[in-house]
């Protein structure tokens, strides 16, 4: 019986190109029916791992198990894994219907079965009206949905999405990432979503796996990673934290800490309204030296008397601070997290 916590199990994966090791002893497990994001900067090895899982890169050491089966040495067409490429890789010579039907035809399904499966899938992605269109006549978002449908119609055990939203505008990205999450939940497919956008990863993922330079930095829920980053890389990459040493904290009057320890303070935890009960809170006073309106939020950079720059983030409502204002923000000292 397969343990659903280890639906996909990658063990000691090592991948080298031309003598350069790009993936170093990577091991992780993925639960069945979840959406996991591979998050990391460009060159961190996310796509390389994805291609190894798909069987498109078989020159590696390690083991890949899927649903209890060792797929390490299987060809891509024997793995029952779907993949959505960054370019979508739709077949330009085939209509939307024929693109989605491609895999079913390879499986030699009957005409009636293909018609039903593709028609159902077109309804799911809302492109029934466009079944006879060619990819060149579709928008970026529609192409992406066809690419997803083409893989999902085969009911793969695992669906890999390699930065599928990167070529789209901001509004469409948000719409489509929500749609992807909805498809995943409705169809119960296990998905791996590669992105370098932390907001995107946190918005749709059950689990986030952060990579840097071919190594796993941290794996956990989006909330866990955001609130408890284990390394400075994760803290820096996942959020806009204030990073301070123990000495800095002492100088700012934020309690005693290990002088050489590294600590983070999330900007949104610095409150500009004085709490009713100051017990457990410490004030930080400074001059506003920078201000960025982020839509519904505003980010301030305060320069303290000790010369430190502290970032604070507030909801954008009834705030009248401007550059050079001297303001005071309040921090619950228990929210200061030690990293590493």
């Amino acid at each position: 019986m397969v343990n659903t916590d280890n639906f996909l199990s990658v063990s000691h994966l090592n991948i080298s190109f031309n003598g350069n090791t790009v993936i170093k002893d990577l091991s992780f497990n993925i639960k069945k029916g979840t959406l996991t994001s591979f998050l990391g900067p460009s060159g961190s090895g996310k796509t390389t791992v994805l291609r190894a899982i798909a069987g498109l890169n078989q020159a590696f050491a390690g083991q890949i198990m899927l649903d209890g089966q060792d797929i390490t040495n299987l060809q891509p067409n024997q793995r029952n894994i779907g993949m959505i490429f960054q370019s979508y890789a739709l077949f330009p010579n085939l209509t939307v219907f024929d693109n989605i039907a491609y895999g079913l035809r390879v499986q030699k399904k009957s005409k009636a079965e293909i018609e039903k499966a593709v028609t159902d899938m077109l309804a799911v992605i809302g492109l029934t009206e466009r079944r006879d269109y060619y990819p060149a006549n579709l928008s970026g978002g529609q192409r992406q949905r066809v690419a997803i449908a083409r893989s999902m119609v085969l009911e793969p055990k695992l669906l890999l999405l390699d930065e599928p939203l990167s070529a789209l505008d901001a509004k469409t990205r948000v719409e489509l990432r929500n749609q992807i999450k909805r498809y995943q939940q409705e169809l119960g497919i296990t998905m791996i979503f590669v992105t370098h956008d932390q907001t995107e990863a946190m918005a749709i993922s059950d689990d986030v796996l952060i990579m840097s330079l071919g190594e796993l930095e941290q794996q956990g829920s989006a909330m866990d990673i955001y609130t408890n980053p284990k390394t400075m890389f994760v803290a820096d990459f996942i959020g806009n934290h204030n990073v301070l040493t123990g000495t800095d904290l002492s100088k700012l009057g934020l309690g005693t800490a290990q002088p050489d320890g590294q600590y983070i303070i999330r900007p949104e935890l610095l409150e500009h309204v004085m709490p009713a009960d100051l017990n457990g809170y410490a004030p930080i006073e400074g001059q506003v030296v920078e201000m960025a309106v982020l839509g519904n939020r505003v980010e301030y950079s305060l320069k303290t008397a000790t010369g430190h720059i502290v970032k604070a983030e507030c909801m954008n409502q009834n705030i009248n601070f401007t550059i050079n204002d001297h303001i005071k923000v309040y921090l619950k000292v228990t929210e200061i997290k030690k990293v590493g």
Binding site: L56, N77, A89, V106
Partner: peptide, 17 residues
């Protein structure tokens, strides 16, 4: 113009040889 590598690999992932 077209992503032939992606298309070739995609066809294999869809079960083709």
């Amino acid at each position: 113009g077209d992503d032939f590598r992606g298309m070739f690999e995609q066809a294999q992932l869809l079960g083709d040889s």
